[in-house]
């Protein structure tokens, strides 16, 4: 495989380069000997138990919850209702609207973040004066806490006093209700998200670009290739695996992203930004329907698994093409 995918990277058996060969054992007295034998479990079990209690167990509990009529006022009560929650959701227009919104938000966020981040990395990978400062400034959005970012953008989008309307008004593009008009809700949230996540793409791509062998690039120049040809022949193939991985990560993170959407629009206007995770939260804590919220969450998890599987299939197809070429 040319690309090591996240799943493969963590589940494959080969650890670090310096790891001990299998089956080596040394005599150590007392507790040391015990550690030698069972140490791995002693070291890893606390964390695994912790994750089991706080994520795996709640996940199972959540799936059970999705088959009940549990309400927020009595979180431990609620009677089993079979597939009622699922039947309701699958026939509800609002739910499907939520699925479409999630997919659109993910698509736009990932495409723009990856394109802007990669182009930014290409720009920053050239030598120019003030490069260090530019790099620091364009990294800042990634470091700004999401809540602060949401407050800033809500202020920028403000209908009367917001700077965006002043700018678009001055440019003759007209003033818009960025957070009130359902036509602009998804745009506003996507713009804020891209601003926030684009630097991470840039930093990752910059690291990849700096590992492109300079000799190869120079060789193409000697052979008379122009800038674009050199990019196509050397740089692009070298950074493609990283682009694929960061795209997958960005996709997974976009499907599960909650805070920035919830804080900027709260899922509105008129459900225009009601992605699945926002929908889960609103159904649980505003409509106070824990059972139905859990069902939305379970379906959302199915969606993100589907997207991941589609990604892996595309990856395989692509690889086959590359091998056969």
């Amino acid at each position: 495989m040319s690309v090591t995918t996240p799943l493969a990277a963590t589940t494959e058996a080969a650890p670090s380069k310096g790891a001990p060969p299998r089956g080596r054992r040394r005599r150590a007295p007392g507790f040391g000997r015990f550690l030698e034998r069972w140490g791995a479990y002693l070291f890893v079990l606390p964390a695994i138990l912790y994750l089991t209690v706080l994520t795996v167990f709640p996940l199972v509990r959540g799936i059970i919850l999705s088959f009940t009529s549990t309400k927020l006022v009595n979180p431990s009560g609620g009677r089993p209702v079979g597939f009622e929650n699922y039947e309701y959701l699958l026939s509800s227009e609002r739910f499907w609207n939520s699925v479409v919104t999630t997919l659109l938000y993910t698509l736009f966020t990932v495409v723009f973040a990856v394109v802007i981040g990669t182009c930014g990395a290409l720009l920053l990978n050239t030598a120019f004066r003030g490069r260090g400062i530019v790099r620091a400034v364009v990294t800042i959005p990634w470091a700004v806490p999401t809540v602060a970012a949401a407050l800033i953008f809500v202020w920028i989008y403000n209908n009367e006093a917001g700077v965006l309307n002043r700018a678009t008004g001055a440019l003759g593009l007209g003033e818009h209700g960025w957070l009130i008009d359902p036509a602009f809700g998804l745009f506003s949230v996507t713009l804020a998200t891209v601003w926030k996540v684009m630097p991470l793409v840039m930093l990752v791509m910059l690291a990849a670009l700096q590992s492109v062998p300079q000799e190869l690039r120079e060789a193409t120049w000697v052979d008379g290739a122009n800038r674009w040809q050199s990019f196509r022949a050397v740089t692009l193939p070298h950074i493609t695996p990283t682009i694929r991985v960061i795209t997958l990560l960005m996709t997974i993170w976009s499907i599960r992203r909650f805070e920035i959407i919830f804080l900027i629009t709260g899922g509105g206007p008129l459900d225009a930004t009601n992605t699945l995770v926002v929908n889960v939260y609103r159904t649980a804590f505003q409509d106070q329907n824990l059972g139905r919220a859990a069902a939305i969450g379970a379906l959302g998890l199915v969606l993100s698994l589907l997207v991941t599987i589609v990604y892996f299939i595309l990856e395989q197809v692509q690889e086959r093409k590359e091998v056969s070429r």
């Binding site: 795996v56 509990r61 959540g62």
Partner: peptide, 23 residues
């Protein structure tokens, strides 16, 4: 063990928060 660590990064907090709230 490696998979459990990785999969929590995929799990939406918004999905976990509903049962976690109940627990």
């Amino acid at each position: 063990a490696g998979f459990i660590f990785f999969s929590t990064q995929m799990l939406p907090e918004a999905l976990i928060i509903v049962p976690l709230y109940a627990i």
